[in-house]
Design a protein around this nucleic acid. Sequence first.
DNA 1: GCGCTTCCATACCGATCAATATAGAAGCGG
DNA 2: CCGCTTCTATATTGATCGGTATGGAAGCGC
Lengths: 203, 203
Amino acid sequence: MEAQEATISRGRPREFCVDAALSAALGVFWSKGYEGASLSELTEAMGVTRPSLYAAFGNKEALFRKALDLYEREKLTFMVAALEAPTARGVAERILTNALSMQTSASGPRGCLSVIHSVACGAEAESIKAEVVARRASSEAALRRRFDQAKVDGDFEEGADPAALVRYLMTILQGMAVQAGSGVPRESLEQLVATTLSLWPGR
Amino acid sequence: MEAQEATISRGRPREFCVDAALSAALGVFWSKGYEGASLSELTEAMGVTRPSLYAAFGNKEALFRKALDLYEREKLTFMVAALEAPTARGVAERILTNALSMQTSASGPRGCLSVIHSVACGAEAESIKAEVVARRASSEAALRRRFDQAKVDGDFEEGADPAALVRYLMTILQGMAVQAGSGVPRESLEQLVATTLSLWPGR
DNA sequence: GCGCTTCCATACCGATCAATATAGAAGCGG
DNA sequence: CCGCTTCTATATTGATCGGTATGGAAGCGC
């Protein structure tokens, strides 16, 4: 009933590329946060007028959710790929190095879109925060399953708790995102990854 | 010249306690962030009318800086105290447990005021973010000096890099703050502290 | 008690926010 | 070429933002 999503193209066709516009919106949300990104900034970066944005995406919150979909689609890709490493140490190494390159890429904004939106916020972003936190649970669950298998494989020392190591690794990832967003140079974060791996228990 | 800071009390005395009002403001900033905290929320929580707030504190940004002073005064207290532990491991343990209790206290908001304001934000909070990031450097420097001494004391293994361990510990602290702000239960964070300490190198 | 100073309360300011009404321009099927 | 649909462009909506002007109430020194 609403937004029939590109029917058989009746009437004047739209003049901009929805994917490109969404990618531009993601860049703004990533560098400013949901509340910090005004519609004026968004429309300018997207090269789209305000009514066009509302016709194509619904409203600001729906636009953010679509941008979050795009972000997680890419992020989850490398996350899933990392899980295929042969050992738990290999999984941690891939996740850390991939997160490092993602959070310090010269092109895009620094830091992590999810981390940005999982800390304190105003009233209008409460539901955004809740969704981001909820989505993170699925990544954690996948990592948890992989580490459970790793324990069976004997990757950890006797008595190690896979859940605790998931928590530990996620904490370092999120801390790294905070530092990247604070402007800590890439070399320092490479040092952080090296330190973490040197302390990683088991194989 | 401006704000003669409580002269010999001429005229009508103010009816509210400045310290209590500032403490209430800190609570709002802590749970909502600088941009997320509106003046209406602040004045209501502080029990102070808008003009009184401006007369006593200047403006919103000045109020935040005073609240940040108050916050860091308490936080730096336990940080300095932690540095007096006899070994690097003891320092890490005290910092982690103190941060844990601070970020998950039942009374106050969860998470860390500084971490909240060191991620992405809108234009109006850029200077706030810059200040928070700058202030963190002093904490890091103090910890760095302590770990340099620890290396001299032989607390670390041969070839360990104190600067890298400072980076590592700060990262875990910040990641823990993100998790606390996301609603991760206290027991999980206690588990995180235990894991971190079990992996800590040296004594 | 008087006068001066300072504080509190209400109402208001311009700016900006997200969201839309209106109207003209552009492409399709017939 | 016509009529219908859907696009874009401008201007505007009501609400809220941070910040203040105005006026009356309250306490001090004298």
